[in-house]
């Protein structure tokens, strides 16, 4: 950082023009957007020049066209619906189980002794390797993917929540206890607010894990879904369709994390900011 500042100062005179000021204020977006645009242009150019087989590379315009075709064909809605329900089912389940269980294991020491070995063991196993067994158990329908998504997302959520409870400020607890606050009161007014940032960290991490589970599940064994669509398109060398499917997943991940960020800000507005008052 320090070096960049020095560089800038050397160039800028005492009265920077408005254009330079605008650039300096939006430097991040300008450089980021510019690079993105440049890459897309080069990609399109290379694809059009015929240097590389379009079968391998596709091109930004072809990908957009493929996307429009997919939506006009209407078939993609089924895939979105299937993948969406798998993702939502698995993620909702992992939230519904991960947060309460994380709170409980953080709060009750004995419970954490009881469940700790299972949580640690399950955490050590890459859960996606269980895919074949889960397919044996739940078939190739929606539920096997929902379970894989659940298994992927539940542990980060549970573990983050658990460590949130355990790192509660000990001084607050002591103060509350010396004023003989009830356990319930302590839990709702100290533990829970202190745990919220941890829960959100777990939730955000869980999104990626759940999406990964859905994709792997659908690549492995499925009859519908975006992962299935990508796999099929790959087999038939429809590179543009593959790219478009991947982009849908990217967008889903970005939007979900964005929503969680917004929610987190909502929850955190009451918290006094750390650091200097100004």
């Amino acid at each position: 950082m320090a070096t960049a500042e020095i560089e800038l100062d050397a160039g800028a005179s005492a009265h920077p023009s408005t254009l330079a000021r605008f650039y300096r204020e939006h430097e991040r977006s300008i450089i980021g957007g510019g690079t993105l645009l440049a890459v897309l242009l080069i990609w399109e150019g290379v694809a059009r020049s015929g240097l590389v087989d379009p079968l391998f590379l596709s091109s930004p315009i072809q990908i957009v066209k493929a996307g429009i075709d997919l939506f006009e064909g209407g078939e993609i809605w089924t895939h979105i619906q299937v993948s969406g329900s798998e993702f939502l089912l698995g993620y909702a389940l992992s939230v519904a189980i991960g947060i309460p269980l994380g709170l409980a294991t953080g709060w009750y020491r004995r419970l954490s002794y009881l469940l700790g070995p299972f949580i640690d063991a399950l955490n050590a196993v890459p859960r996606l390797t269980l895919m074949p067994i889960i397919v044996i158990w739940f078939g190739i329908g929606i539920w096997s993917k929902a379970v894989v998504a659940f298994l992927g997302a539940v542990l980060p959520i549970l573990i983050a929540t658990n460590s949130g409870v355990r790192t509660s400020e000990a001084r607050y607890l002591q103060v509350a206890r010396s004023f003989s606050a009830s356990e319930l009161k302590i839990f709702t007014s100290i533990i829970l607010p202190g745990t919220v940032p941890f829960i959100f960290t777990g939730l955000k991490y869980g999104i990626g894990r759940a999406l990964l589970g859905v994709v792997v599940g659908e690549l492995y064994a499925a009859t519908a879904g975006l992962g299935y669509m990508i796999g099929e398109a790959g087999d038939t060398f429809q590179t543009s369709v593959v790219f478009f499917g991947v982009l849908i997943f990217t967008a889903t991940g970005l939007v979900s994390v964005g929503v969680l960020d917004a929610l987190e800000r909502r929850f955190e507005t009451w918290r006094p900011k750390a650091g200097a008052a100004s």
Binding site: M1, T3, A4, E27, R28, I31, G32, G33, G34, T35, L36, V39, L55, F56, G208, L211, L212, V214, V215, V216, L219, G227, I230, G231, A233, G234, D235, F237, T239, V242, F243, G245, V246, F249, T250, T252, G253, L254, V257
Partner: peptide, 30 residues
């Protein structure tokens, strides 16, 4: 280290991070 480089690669890192990278498998196979 280089702030401008981080601006340039930022969008790509964020996008790639949000993607379940496994979805790239069919592309990689092509």
């Amino acid at each position: 280290w280089y702030r401008r480089l981080s601006y340039a690669v930022g969008p790509f890192l964020a996008g790639f991070n949000a993607t379940p990278q496994v979805a790239l498998l069919p592309l990689i196979i092509i």
